[in-house]
Amino acid sequence: MRLELSPLLKIIGDWISSLGLPTWLVDLIEMCGAAAMVMGMAFLIILFLVWWERKLSGHFQQRLGPMRTGWHGWLQTIADGIKLFQKEDIIPKTVDRKVFYWAPVICFASSFAAFACLPWGKNLWPTDLNIGILYIFAITTFVVISLLMAGWSSNNKYALLGGMRSAAQIVSYEVPLTLSVLGVIVATQSLSMVAIVGAQEKVYNWFIFRQPLGFLIYLIAATAETNRAPFDIPEAEQELVAGFNIEYSGMKFAMFFMAEFLNLFLVSAVAVTLFLGGWHGPFLPSWLWFLLKAFFIVFVIIWFKWTYPRLRVDQLMEFCWKFLLPLAFLNLIVAGFLFR
């Protein structure tokens, strides 16, 4: 017996509609409920990922990672959060205050908004847009704007270099990222995330087997999209100290930090949905399958970070435009012939 969440939600939904409230109120309650659940889930994921990255990096480096706060340090992120929350919120005198203030908010909000379209499990999604994948890519692009805002408004040369780098990088890698996904869309004839998952019910139908090149391109471009090593040049610590968020402290910094991990999970979740069969899988409940697969992709991306050196900014661009992009086009052409 699989422990699915969707019947439970349906019972709650039925109960709310049976209360005899006006329809608009029922809709509103259901909307807010779904949003609250996704937000709760997002925060839980952040809490877990921060801990997990620290733990993994520790083991990659023959250390233990956090051990003092709770069992194997599982409370570490909460302790970090409390610390960041208590920090003085320093706003340097010369910054452009409005832009400086809104940059982390936009960054976090745009990463978070993309969660609306993710199919978390069987019959378990906040909303099924018929342009789902397009919406996700469109809304996450706002992250670039926020990084640029942060870099520009900080009035700091390192931050500006970081912001410029991130803008150049993310805009460039958006192209192969989108192209790599197009192969899947050509095959399913749909932009809806739910429909894409629906097309991968059997394991041999997973797009990782039908579009292996597309998956690789997606994974590389996604790593670059999330500013992770070896593509972490916007915040290259050894060159730019901290990059775009150099002037941020306290909760504003935490917002960037959380957005980074949300983005990390988001690209992994999209990879799972598009290439790894989404929530399909035997024995375990569907939502657990989804999370397990997503965390596996996250693991791979973290693995990259703790293994590779960083590329230089021009090499990064060269790799994108001269190698990844032609490859992505090739993949799309092949997909066009295959799924005619």
Binding site: S57, F60, Q61, Q62, A236, Q238, K305, T307, P309, R310
Partner: peptide
């Protein structure tokens, strides 16, 4: 040196 190139793990190995 590897740290400055962005590779963090070799540093810990060397320190070991």
């Amino acid at each position: 040196f590897s740290l400055d190139l962005g590779a963090i793990t070799p540093f810990l190995y060397c320190i070991r």
